[in-house]
Simulated assay, not measured.
Amino acid sequence: MSAAHKTNRTLNALGSASGSVLVLAAFIALWWAASTSGWVNRAFLPTPQATLQSLVQGLAGGDLAAYTWATLSRMFSGWVLASALGIALGALIGSSQRASEWIGPTLEFIRPLPASAVMPLAIALFGLSGGMVLAVVAFGAMWPVLLATLHGLATCTSSCARSRARWNSATWPSCSRSACPTPCPTSWPACGCR
């Protein structure tokens, strides 16, 4: 790589970064103008200074750090549960025609529901608890994983059938050994793993 090319890349990166900083500064200036001039009531839009003071107070002496940790731990637990359920259901539906016929329509009916629409049912089942939050987070995060696993298995099944036909091999064990690793490239990014 030449020095001129490195210089151009550095200047482009600096230009992108300075553009981002300018947009952020313009957003904060608009925020400040809207809150101090009275365009928006301060009860709904506090000034940037008041927001920063509240953030510092919440982190230093308040419960903000504990609440943030609780939120992050529930988010991570929900992600793990959603990944496990999405991969398990996707593998079951993608590898079994009967499971696809029985479970698939119900899941396709439930899939478009937003996670907030499931909250009343989750409250009825789990009460107002961490389990309810975990169930709602897992419900919302499961669908990309499930669909990616289904896609990976569908791709695997067709490529496996082509390989079997090409090599004149009708043995299922040779295909089943490759069935699990093949969907992984599509399932793991859906889980958030990169």
Rank of each mutant, 00 (worst) to 15 (best):
M1T: 13
M1L: 14
A4H: 15
H5S: 10
T7E: 02
T7H: 08
N8I: 13
N8S: 10
R9P: 06
R9Y: 10
T10K: 07
N12S: 12
A13G: 15
L14R: 11
A17D: 05
L24D: 11
L24E: 05
I28S: 08
I28G: 04
W31G: 05
G38N: 05
N41T: 04
R42C: 02
P48M: 12
P48W: 08
Q49P: 14
T51R: 08
V56S: 05
L59H: 12
L59T: 11
A60T: 11
D63P: 14
A66N: 10
A66R: 15
Y67F: 06
T68K: 15
R74E: 01
G78R: 00
G78Y: 00
W79G: 06
L81P: 04
L81H: 05
L85T: 09
A88E: 02
L89N: 09
A91Q: 01
S95F: 04
S95H: 03
S96E: 07
A99N: 01
A99D: 14
I103V: 10
G104K: 00
P105G: 03
L107W: 13
F109T: 09
P112G: 04
A115L: 10
S116T: 15
A117M: 13
P120V: 09
L121G: 07
A122I: 06
I123T: 03
G130I: 01
L134D: 00
L134C: 02
V136M: 13
F139L: 03
G140P: 00
G140Q: 05
W143H: 03
L146Q: 00
L147P: 01
T149D: 01
H151L: 14
L153W: 00
A154M: 04
A154G: 08
T155A: 15
T157I: 12
T157D: 11
S158M: 13
S159H: 06
R166A: 12
S169Y: 09
A170K: 06
T171D: 07
P173G: 06
S174Q: 11
R177V: 13
C180A: 10
P181T: 12
T182S: 14
C184S: 10
T186H: 12
S187L: 04
G192W: 01
C193I: 05
